[in-house]
């Protein structure tokens, strides 16, 4: 997995390429956690595979962000990964957390 970070005023973006799984999930988690910006985007356009550990980490980080009054956006999700995330209920969880961060 490769991660490229871009930071602008008040916003940061992490472009993720390759495979995000059990073996490297902490790497992306650390990158998300070290960013101080109000809004952080995780761009998954180059992602080929994500396992449940990757999904769990992204939702845990989104929960932490919402509790802090910040926003973690997961953007440009490849269609096959989008389908997997929909089955788990990923987007419904993000919707709920946006309004009720402690849900």
């Amino acid at each position: 997995m490769e991660i490229r970070a871009r930071q602008e005023k008040g916003m940061a973006s992490l472009e993720v390429e390759g495979e995000l799984d059990f073996s490297n999930v902490e790497l992306l988690q650390r990158e998300i956690q070290r960013l101080p910006e109000e809004v952080v985007e995780v761009d998954l356009q180059g992602l080929q595979f994500i396992d449940s550990s990757g999904v769990g980490m992204l939702l845990s980080q989104a929960r932490i962000f919402y509790k802090q009054g910040r926003t973690l956006r997961i953007v440009r999700i490849p269609s096959h990964i989008q389908e997997d995330l929909e089955v788990i209920g990923f987007f419904r969880v993000l919707e709920v957390l946006e309004t009720k961060p402690n849900a």
């Binding site: 939702l59 089955v87 788990i88 209920g89 419904r92 969880v93 709920v96 402690n102 849900a103």
Partner: peptide, 14 residues
Amino acid sequence: CWGVAIGLLEDYLG
């Protein structure tokens, strides 16, 4: 049938 995975929300949603 659909629903959110166990543990992701405090109350089951489906």
